[in-house]
Every structure is written in C-alpha cells, then in structure tokens.
Amino acid sequence: MSVSVDSPFVHKVWNDSELSKMVDGGVQFPMLSDQGGKIGTLYGIYDEEGGVETRGRFIIDPDGIVQGFEVLTPPVGRNVDESVRQVKAFQLVRESEGSEATPSGWQPGKKTLKPGPDLVGNVWKEWSVKDNYDK
C-alpha cells in the first residue's frame, strides 16, 4: 500500500488520469491518505518543513513486525525489484523457521545458507561473488 499527504480524491484523479496510462488497470493496491502527516510522523519519515512524506518503505511481516525499511530523499525513486527481492527473502527465511538465511546478492532460486557450527569458516565453499553477483 502507498501513503502520501494527498486526499483520497486526489489519489483517484491521479490514478485515473495518469497512473492508469502507465500501468494496465491502474494502481492495484490501496492509496492511503495521511493529511497532516500523522502516520509519517509515527514512522519517522514525515518532513515537517516540506509538509510531505519522504520516500520511506517498510516491510511488515504477517505478525505486524517491521522486518526492514529504507528511506530516501524525494528526488531518487525506489527500485521495486529490490523491495520484492527482500520480501521474497524474508518469506523464505520465515518458512524455513530461521534454519535458512539468504546471503548477500541472493535472488529467488539461488542457494541459501544454513547457519550452524559447520558453516563457520566455510562460507567460501558455499558462496562466491561470481554465483551471486555476475549477471
């Protein structure tokens, strides 16, 4: 879901007049209105001087726990692929009940790590820059 200080009416017009021309069917998630910046303040990303939210992005798990966040100043946009990758990684870790971890550069389908005594000092056997970063 998305949040800005705009009213729900402005969200509708923005979706109908512009966003639906960029994405088929328009926005598929709720566009929340935080007039006054109360929610943004709760999450620590509201810019009181500018009267707007900064680009805060939070991953919240099924128990309502914050698993990750990122905050950018307004001129730089997010990378949605990276957010999705992180959600998939957190989902995998949760499904494994913590027995698996996703190493640096992990992508869905790639090898995970199983932390334990045997892995200490042996990550180099399981993980390489080439396998995780070369495209």
Binding site: M1, S2, V3, S4, V5, D6, S7, P8, F9, V10, H11, K12, V13, W14, N15, Q28, F29, P30, M31, L32, S33, D34, G40, Y43, I45, G50, V52, E53, T54, R55, G56, R57, F58, I59, I60, D61, P62, D63, G64, P74, R78, S83, V87, F90, Q91
Partner: peptide, 29 residues
Amino acid sequence: PAYYQGKFVSIDLEEYRGKWVLLCFYPGD
C-alpha cells in the same frame, strides 16, 4: 482513508495481520 479500486475505503493496518505488507510513503501525487 484510502482510494482503492474505484472506492473510498478505510484501511486499518491491523486487518493486514497474516499478510506481508509493503508500506511505501512518497512526497505527493
């Protein structure tokens, strides 16, 4: 309050328990 698929609705974060939520703030429409 929110705009969601043609309707004006009220969104309560608590109702999303059991789901993964990606909450994205941005400066403005």
